[in-house]
């Protein structure tokens, strides 16, 4: 089988790409996509560690399943917020949403 570190490598790369999207894109939906990529990287890690560590238990798969549910919830709420913001400000550019500025 492919050694574990290669999976970790792919996951790390995916995570960093997602991070970059989150940090640099202006569109909120693109940021959300970046978050999804990061979550998937985590899922790859979880499943990989499970497969190479303790495949006879259910821990890794169960956690992954929970992460997926949380990610789905996050996507739903996040997109709802984006739509609400768009409706009120006619913009989804995060830099323009700076009500919290000191």
């Amino acid at each position: 089988m492919v050694p574990l570190w290669m999976f970790l490598l792919v996951a790390a790369a995916l995570f960093c790409i997602g991070t970059f999207a989150v940090l640099s894109r202006r569109n909120a939906i693109a940021i959300l996509m970046g978050v999804e990529l990061m979550l998937n990287a985590v899922n790859i890690n979880l499943v990989a560690f499970w497969r190479y560590g303790t495949p006879e238990t259910m821990m890794g798969q169960a956690f992954t399943a929970f992460v997926m549910v949380v990610a789905a919830a996050e996507a739903a709420v996040g997109l709802a917020i984006i739509i609400a913001v768009y409706r009120s400000r006619k913009s989804v550019v995060v830099e323009e949403v700076d009500l919290m500025r000191g």
Partner: peptide, 18 residues
């Protein structure tokens, strides 16, 4: 970096575990 075991829990077991 190699798998610890080739015995893999099945989807049925996942269902039970949940």
């Amino acid at each position: 970096s190699a798998p610890a075991s080739d015995v893999v829990a099945t989807t049925a077991e996942l269902g039970v575990a949940l």
